[in-house]
Nucleic acid binder design. Structure first.
Lengths: 217, 217
DNA sequence: AAGAAGCTGTGAACTTTTTCACAGATAGCA
DNA sequence: TGCTATCTGTGAAAAAGTTCACAGCTTCTT
């Protein structure tokens, strides 16, 4: 009944990138684009782009390629919840506040509407146009505002507890920045953004470059 | 001559997680651990853990499993550059400063030693014990301090230019937080952390959960 | 001392993801 | 009109990553 579950996580990630690139092109007045051009912009390959668009049932035209505006709109309607998606963030420390600032106004259909923290100095203040609330109000806020997404930016030792509270409150998708893996029911989608691992991966591959002098472009 | 290039990027990522988990266990006085326990902690499977450790040539013992301290040390010596890895960050905005704070003192062999920005108000100041310098000094700093890693936290429209400057200065690994794909020579390792995509993926899978009520655990 | 239990290491099977390669389509041109 | 060039859509092949399943080892128990 739903084609949705059939589209892989990786494809979803790339579609998100494509539509962002397409927005940029659209702003520059670009009308059409070929798969190999989108591939270059997105750092992928042409067949991959075509496969990804095939996954959402989008068709281009031979020799004109894809229509930028139309494709962009198709990705939107495939990915966005028409009613919008509302999220909250738990942990209003440096990282939490930076992420709120980063996302503010980025997509019309996806908004962070409240922050939560347990620091009395933060509670009651406003961060990036969002109220910062006491954790005690998490469950009622989620229910009242129809929140489905939670962002976790608390320290590692509090992350599991916060994840449990979010799930208990009814959140079904979590973006976790804490450097541990959360244990949550399988119907909750969890995306781990592990900054330490990302950094250490780069450090590792830097080192291996150094060992073996690479020859040629 | 080097086993290093044979270990996949995914395995490196998991090793980074394993050693972090092992540090935690070590601090609690834990001595031994089985593959299935590490699997639970890391959100993977037991055979996967064993395969990953096989990749670095580490052997456990049947019925005792792996020695926590020894395994942790083995991963360190596999992943860390013995001379340490020094990095710089370009872009001292909200996100850049949050990331500096996040990494400060996290690993002895991996340090961010300087920040760069083009805002005159920031230049000359100190952020998380790092000097914030003018972009003009990037190249000489990289050379003088033996920097091999760069973190990009500038807006999308400046990211490619910053990437080019980093590579020109001699950096061979980049952690990019700007929401575009960088075009750089193939000998430079680039890790993209795309916060927008991560968020949009969660939003997408949240929505698809809602469509089809999941039955059972 | 011998059997039971439960682990690791790993070849082989399987699954997922990516890439290839080409039929079919469209537009431009002579 | 017919030829050429170049694109898309996609079956099939290849590659990458994961899981299975079991031989072999070690310890514990009786």
């Amino acid at each position: 009944m739903e084609t949705r579950e059939l589209v892989s996580e990786k494809t979803i990630g790339r579609l998100s990138l494509y539509r962002r690139l397409l927005s940029g092109l659209l702003a520059k007045g670009r009308q059409n684009i070929y798969s190999h051009e989108l591939a270059t912009l997105s750092g992928g390959t042409a067949p991959q782009v075509r496969r990804d668009l095939m996954a959402i049932g989008y068709s281009g035209s031979p020799s004109k390629g894809y229509e930028v505006a139309d494709l962009s709109e198709s990705i939107n309607s495939f990915m966005d919840n028409p009613d919008g998606t509302r999220g909250i963030i738990v942990g209003a420390g440096n990282l939490g506040r930076a992420i709120m600032a980063y996302f503010e106004g980025r997509r019309p259909k996806l908004k962070i509407v409240a922050a939560f923290d347990n620091d009395p100095n933060k509670i009651g203040s406003e961060i990036c146009n969002c109220p910062c609330c006491d954790m005690a109000y998490l469950k009622t806020t989620v229910a009242q505002m129809g929140i489905s997404l939670g962002v976790i930016t608390v320290p590692a030792n509090r992350a599991q507890e916060v994840g449990d509270k979010l799930v208990d409150a009814g959140v079904t998708g979590i973006l976790n920045f804490a450097p541990i893996r959360l244990h949550l029911p399988p119907n909750v989608y969890v995306e781990h953004v592990d900054l330490t691992t990302s950094m250490e991966k780069v450090a590792y591959f830097v080192q291996s470059n150094k060992d073996s002098d690479v020859a040629g472009a």
